[in-house]
Design a protein around this nucleic acid. Structure first.
Length: 490
DNA sequence: TCTGGGGTCCTAGGACCC
DNA sequence: TCTGGGGTCCTAGGACCC
């Protein structure tokens, strides 16, 4: 038996912990550039604000409906997340942290009334962190996700279930254990839930499932089971129950093994296990839209260098070496009058590396190879690919899968000493340690350094970088910066 | 004026091998 | 008329997730 624990409207809920006046009001959290809504309170959803909707489209609701918009404060959300995760972990032997606001728990062998356990988990997370959660239990991860969806919907929109199910769904609000339902009850709930609510069935697949003419004899079998008498000509798969009763072979042929697995999981056969020891990432990316269009190469060099510093640090954190660096820049497709240009380049490294200087040098070379003047660039990104584990005991740059350079002397026989490579290791560790202790960008490679007064401008005329993000509405980082800690009035 | 930033997995098709 | 067959590896693109 699996549980899925999920924070309701995570980012908004984090903000409300420190600004209780926001409770009950429509609130959205904006993306990095204050460009789009990436989180919405229930009240904002009720106003019709859609996920990822551009801010300028809903901005008028500030005046007309009291909508509050905040800049994203990922440092705060990340810290609140780890507090919540460590509390949830106490309730089961194994936990998979699935995203910043969700985790799976493996309840196999855990005795007791799961609904009661789920309620205790909610209570404790709410009391200790202030974050409201929903909990779903199911025999598979997909069913646990669906149960979580029911827990939320039953709590927030009880009216979306047919009247004869209200009594049942009322009991499932906030904490929903599919394990305690009869087969008939589970079918009724599945019948009342759109297929698009299923984990792994996205927009495109939903549309195609809706349009599907169920092939072959199975359609008849399905209508027989369902007792609806729809018969031949039965149109498409619309509800979760439709999907559960659909023919697996057909689905696999028409879609993919992913959809097949999803259906098997909905029928109660586990195809996925809780993964409590996630592998290292296979790629690491950092990209961002600019606050204003950027045209000049030096500005792009600066921002790409900064992005590369970030991904290099994250690669070292997870003990990986990059085999290649990928860089892209692009104009904005929304600026119809601009000439469009979205080049990218991947530059393989002669030796896998996690050295910021090596990676920046490659990234900047890639950037120079794709940059063309005369375009309004709106976004850039740096990505490390072909990541591989750094072999234990070897210096960075000498991963166990490293391909040696045919034209360079073999560096391996060098005895451990303060050679070129040894220094590199120490330098990167020192750089990470300094930035960890004194804050990001305390020490940086020069091309990634902010070009402030004394470097690019006249003394005293420090200017924001051309590519700086707008972040006008960010709340304090209450839990991770001492100087931003909340104050109680005397 | 203003439009997110990360990731994963699967598939099809081409290059290449013998 | 008629031009192999089986396999691997890589890449690009698409779908999904939050």
């Amino acid at each position: 038996m699996f549980a899925l624990v999920d924070v309701n409207n995570m980012y908004v809920s984090c903000e409300r912990v420190f600004r209780p006046a926001l409770i009950g009001r429509p609130v959205v959290v904006l993306s990095n550039n204050d460009g789009a809504c990436i989180a919405r309170s229930n009240e904002a959803k009720d106003l019709g604000v859609r996920m990822a909707q551009p801010w300028f489209e809903v901005r008028h609701l500030e005046r007309t409906a009291g909508l509050v918009a905040l800049s994203a404060n990922f440092e705060l959300y990340g810290d609140m997340s780890s507090r919540m995760m460590s509390l949830a972990a106490e309730f089961a032997p194994r936990q998979e942290i699935y995203s910043i606001d969700e985790c799976f728990l493996d309840f196999d062998g855990v005795p007791g009334d799961r609904t009661a356990i789920g309620r205790e988990l909610r209570r404790k997370v709410l009391q200790w962190t202030g974050l409201p959660t929903s909990v779903g239990f199911g025999a598979t991860k997909t069913l646990a996700k669906l149960a979580n969806h029911v827990a939320k919907t039953a709590d927030r929109k009880p009216g979306s279930y047919p009247p004869e199910l209200r009594g049942l769904t009322q009991r499932l609000a906030q904490v929903c254990d599919f394990g305690q339902l009869t087969a008939g009850e589970l079918e009724a709930v599945m019948q009342a839930t759109d297929v698009g609510a299923v984990w792994g069935i996205g927009r495109k697949t939903t549309a195609q499932l809706n349009e599907m003419r169920e092939g072959g004899g199975r359609a008849g079998a399905r209508s027989g089971e369902g007792g609806e008498g729809g018969g031949a000509g039965q149109r498409g798969i619309h509800t979760v129950l439709d999907l559960v009763h659909a023919d697996v072979a057909t689905l696999r042929r028409q879609f993919s093994v992913v959809v097949e697995k999803t259906v098997r999981e909905l029928r109660g056969t586990p195809c996925m296990d809780v993964n409590d020891a996630p592998e290292a990432n296979q790629q690491i990316m950092c990209s961002r839209s600019f606050g204003a269009p950027v045209t000049e190469l030096p500005d792009l060099v600066e921002v790409v260098s900064q992005f590369t510093s970030q991904v290099a640090r994250r690669a070292r954190e997870q003990g990986s070496l990059a085999g290649a660096v990928h860089v892209f820049i692009s104009t904005s497709p929304y600026r119809r009058n601009d000439r469009q240009h979205a080049p990218s380049a991947t530059l393989p490294l002669p030796q896998p590396s996690a050295d910021t200087r090596v990676l920046i040098s490659a990234a900047v070379r890639a950037l120079r190879s794709i940059y063309k003047p005369g375009f309004n660039y709106a976004k850039a990104g740096a990505m490390l690919v072909d990541l591989q584990a750094q072999a234990p005991g070897l210096e960075p740059g000498l991963g166990q899968q490293a391909t040696l350079d045919l034209f360079e002397p073999d560096p391996q026989p060098e005895p451990p000493q303060r050679g070129r490579i040894g220094q590199r290791t120490d330098l990167m560790s020192a750089l990470d340690a300094l930035n960890e202790r004194f804050g990001r960008q305390t020490v940086a490679v020069a091309s990634a350094a902010r070009r402030t007064a004394g470097l690019a401008g006249a003394p005293g005329t420090s200017r924001p970088a051309a590519h700086a993000s707008r972040q006008a509405r960010r709340s304090p980082r209450y839990t991770t910066r001492l100087e931003e800690i909340a104050r109680a009035r005397a």
